[in-house]
Design a protein around this nucleic acid. Structure first.
Lengths: 189, 189
DNA sequence: AGCCGCATGTAACTTGTTACATGATTTC
DNA sequence: GAAATCATGTAACAAGTTACATGCGGCT
């Protein structure tokens, strides 16, 4: 169900095609939910059938035709109603964590290599998020933004994403330090 | 696939029944992977069929019979091999985060109530994790533990869990503060 | 010549969730 | 007497993943 809600919120920012949403879900929405393009196309179909979104075909000249979706009043109502339903508890689910748990029975060097990869990708994500944050704050303070902005939801979830990536980075560094002696290759952080 | 590996690591700590694993997956393993009892029973069946674990029927007098699973050499090999396969990238997936993103279009008071609930459960989890950490360290320092323990994987994943819950707590507090004026009820943290 | 971006989709498959069933024993 | 714990399972379903297909335009 949460995929539906994530799509509904995304559409509050304006109309979008399935393709647009797929890109959005890769950057900003990935902060709190993720989905593949195929899931989105399937879900948008269903939602159009149940009247939560309306689809308008837009023919383009030098590009394939688009199906532009927008929120209907029913969609807005569903979104509002969805915030009153108890959200499922969440936990971390990460294959890399499973590997780290198994590190004493596995191949330390390859796990360390995967951590190096994640470290790079977390740093890149963090940089992107922080640029977005700066853009939102627009020179002002966080307190000022939170008091005056007409929408604070996207800022709050972005803050969660930033904290998450910071934590990832420092945990990765800790794991690399803790496994350094057990590794053959020198530690190039 | 990761469920399989999570089961394999869990069994490195000793033999267990499906029921035992279900409890384990609710407490410690939930740090990095989660699964329902049904998933475990299904997966254990498959793993027994493919020879990664062996099942031994244990008849009990005042209790239902157990099926006790243990790792086979093939299981150990599969676990080791699994640490060389690239883990999938992960992201946060949380219905509550979707609600917060939608908070400006939803029911602020009920979202705030859900945050209060999560806050309580994160605090409880954190306390449990920290007790487990103290137990592992056994009075010594972290550095000492990491240098001398024969297994550091479980400590490292526990550290990730602790950091995650700490982050949750401070983010929840931030969201409550940021939405306080918009709420009807006073803020009882 | 070949790859990337645009834009949508079908189909098959694997995972994860929910509901239900059984039946004895121990604890409140 | 009711609820929780022990212990396993079936069945149906929902959600998520992977592979593949199409076809044009622009870039290198």
């Amino acid at each position: 169900m949460a995929l539906q809600e994530a799509i509904l919120v995304a559409l509050t920012h304006g109309t979008a095609s399935g393709y647009d949403l797929a890109k959005t879900f890769d950057v900003s929405v990935a902060n709190y939910w993720s989905a593949t393009a195929q899931q989105l196309y399937r879900e948008l179909d269903r939602m159009a059938a149940s009247g939560l979104v309306s689809a308008e075909m837009v023919e383009q000249e030098r590009r394939p035709n688009k199906r532009i979706y927008s929120l209907t009043p029913a969609g807005r109502a569903a979104l509002r109603e969805s915030t009153t339903r108890t959200p499922k508890p969440t936990a971390i689910r990460d294959e890399l964590l499973v590997q780290v748990e198994a590190i004493d029975h596995g191949d330390t060097d390859s796990v360390r290599a995967f951590i190096h990869e994640r470290l790079a990708s977390s740093r890149a994500k963090l940089a992107r998020y922080e640029r977005r944050r700066e853009g939102m704050l627009d020179g002002g303070s966080e307190a000022h933004f939170l008091q005056t902005a007409r929408r604070i939801g996207p800022y709050l979830t972005l803050a969660r994403g930033i904290a998450f990536e910071r934590e990832n980075i420092s945990w990765f560094e800790m794991v690399l330090a803790a496994t350094a002696e057990k590794s053959i290759d020198a530690d190039q952080t």
